[in-house]
């Protein structure tokens, strides 16, 4: 039943963003069909979904919620992009590191020599 209604809704909607009617139908389905996750439950599973740790069954429930709930879909999509941006910015920093400050190199070499003497 759930699968059938979901399929029907997605067929009807096609590639378009959901209009007001589809959004109402989607939110009705989320509230009234059995086995649906609420938004806070969806939130609880984001980490494990992103890391690929969910069982097939829970993953399906997670993805169903995402298809029916535009807010969670936007949220998850931004979550994924935010992580990618952070990783990219940090790894770019490392591609082009500035050299070592000369005074730091000198301090390190001096500390080593003192350590050898002591």
């Amino acid at each position: 039943m759930r699968e059938f209604l979901l399929k029907l809704l997605l067929q009807f909607r096609g590639d378009k963003d959901p209009g007001p009617t589809e959004q109402r139908v989607g939110s009705w389905m989320l509230r009234h069909l059995p086995g649906m996750l609420t938004c806070p439950e969806f939130e609880e599973f984001i980490h494990d979904y992103y890391e690929g740790l969910l069982s097939a069954k829970v993953r399906r429930r997670f993805e169903t919620h995402m298809q029916l709930c535009p807010m969670c879909q936007v949220h998850f999509d931004s979550y994924v992009r935010a992580i990618a941006l952070g990783r990219q910015v940090c790894s770019d920093d490392e591609q082009l590191p500035e050299g070592m400050p000369q005074e730091l190199v000198a301090a390190i070499l001096l500390a080593r020599n003192q350590d050898l003497d002591s």
């Binding site: 989320l30 938004c39 806070p40 939130e43 807010m71 936007v74 999509d77 931004s78 941006l85 990219q88």
Partner: peptide, 24 residues
């Protein structure tokens, strides 16, 4: 995240589709 009394998530319903590379 914040939720309304029906436990629906607040926040935007739409976002741009720019990839991280495009954003950078």
């Amino acid at each position: 995240p914040k939720y309304d009394p029906n436990l629906f998530r607040g926040g935007p319903r739409n976002a741009n589709a720019l990839t991280p590379e495009e954003l950078l």
